[in-house]
Simulated scan of single mutants.
Amino acid sequence: MRYDVSVVGLYILDILGRPVSRIPDRGNVEFIDEIRLTVAGTAGGVVVNTAKLGLNSLAVGAVGNDEKADFVLGAMDRLGIDISAMQRLDGIPTSATILNIRPNGERPALHMRGASDHFDVPPRLYDQIFDAPILHLGGTGLLKTLDGERSRLLLEEAKRRGCTVTFDLIAASAETAGLVLPLLPSIDYFMPSIEEARDMSGQTSPADCAAFYLDRGAQTCVFTLGGEGAYYAAADGTRLHVPAYDIDVVDTTGCGDAFDAGFITALTHRMDPEAAIDFAQGVAALVASGLGSDAGVVSFDHTKERVAALQAGRRKG
Rank of each mutant, 00 (worst) to 15 (best):
E106K: 00
P133Q: 03
G256R: 02
F119T: 09
E156R: 14
V8I: 15
F130N: 06
Y126C: 13
F190G: 00
F279D: 06
I101C: 04
A233F: 12
P206G: 07
G61C: 08
P192S: 09
S205G: 02
S193L: 04
Q87N: 02
E34C: 06
I277S: 07
G139E: 06
T145P: 00
T140I: 09
T50K: 00
Y11H: 06
D90F: 06
A69V: 14
S116Y: 06
G227A: 14
P243F: 12
S57T: 07
I129Q: 09
E106D: 14
V60D: 04
T140S: 11
A309P: 01
A115T: 08
D77N: 13
D117S: 13
S6W: 06
D131R: 08
D70C: 03
A207N: 02
Y189K: 00
I83E: 00
V297P: 02
D278R: 15
L169R: 00
G64Q: 05
L125D: 09
F259N: 00
I12F: 05
G217V: 04
M86D: 10
V8Y: 04
L153W: 03
R78D: 14
A266F: 14
G162W: 14
L99R: 01
A177T: 02
T176H: 05
A207G: 03
S293R: 02
G80K: 08
R270S: 11
R22S: 13
A172H: 05
V249S: 01
D25G: 11
N100E: 12
R160F: 12
V121F: 15
A59S: 05
T145D: 01
R102G: 03
D272I: 10
Y245H: 13
L179S: 02
D248M: 00
D33K: 13
G54H: 09
A285H: 14
R216K: 11
T94P: 02
G178D: 04
R270F: 08
T204I: 11
T94Q: 10
L184V: 09
V250F: 07
A312P: 12
C221H: 10
Y245V: 01
L110E: 01
G296I: 10
Y231N: 06
L179G: 09
D260W: 01
R2A: 13
A276L: 10
V165C: 03
D260A: 15
R113H: 09
A197N: 11
T38N: 08
S21F: 06
S201M: 10
P103R: 04
L79W: 11
I92R: 01
D168H: 08
S116A: 13
H118T: 01
P185H: 04
D66M: 05
R315P: 00
A211T: 06
D127C: 04
